[in-house]
């Protein structure tokens, strides 16, 4: 028995391995995620108020807020700071839009050594490509459903 079949035979071993898993620090992780995620959203809210004050509204306002946040996400990734935040904050820095920016910038920087076309540009969508693909696809489905409703 090899490979996948062995999995069935060695359930005992797998159970034993799982029992040895070091405990996840649920509370600490969640607290960090809550704090950092909340903070990024508060900064977003602050930008919203500032831009509202500057006279923006509606889609323009919402769009500008995300553009600014994405810019800072990209910049911190470039400085090599974002991954340090991410190591402690976990989902707190993955889920906000800055995490999306991080997932685009990090492969772009990393794969530049393989050239600008097949390195930077093609690998840029390593992670973010999935988001755009499923986002556009589900958006189109929603649009069609609403059109026929």
């Amino acid at each position: 028995m090899t490979g996948k079949n062995a999995q069935n035979c060695n359930n005992n071993y797998l159970k034993y391995v799982r029992a040895l898993d070091p405990p996840t620090k649920h509370f600490k992780n969640c607290l960090a995620a809550f704090g950092v995620g909340g903070l990024i959203c508060t900064i977003g809210q602050f930008l919203r108020y500032m831009l509202e004050y500057a006279g923006l509204s509606g889609d323009e306002l919402a769009g500008t807020v995300s553009v600014i946040l994405i810019f800072f996400g990209c910049l911190l990734t470039g400085f090599g700071v974002y991954d340090r935040i991410g190591r402690h904050a976990g989902a707190g820095s993955i889920v906000p839009i800055t995490g999306f920016a991080n997932s685009v910038t990090s492969p772009a920087i990393e794969f530049r050594t393989e050239g600008y076309i097949y390195g930077t540009a093609a690998k840029m969508f390593n992670v973010a490509g999935a988001i755009i693909v499923y986002g556009v696809f589900s958006g189109v489905i929603v649009g069609i459903i609403y059109y026929f409703l």
């Binding site: 508060t42 977003g44 809210q45 946040l69 906000p96 839009i97 999306f100």
Partner: peptide
């Protein structure tokens, strides 16, 4: 507000 729009 931003609490709901900033996350992915």
């Amino acid at each position: 507000g931003a609490g709901a729009t900033v996350p992915i």
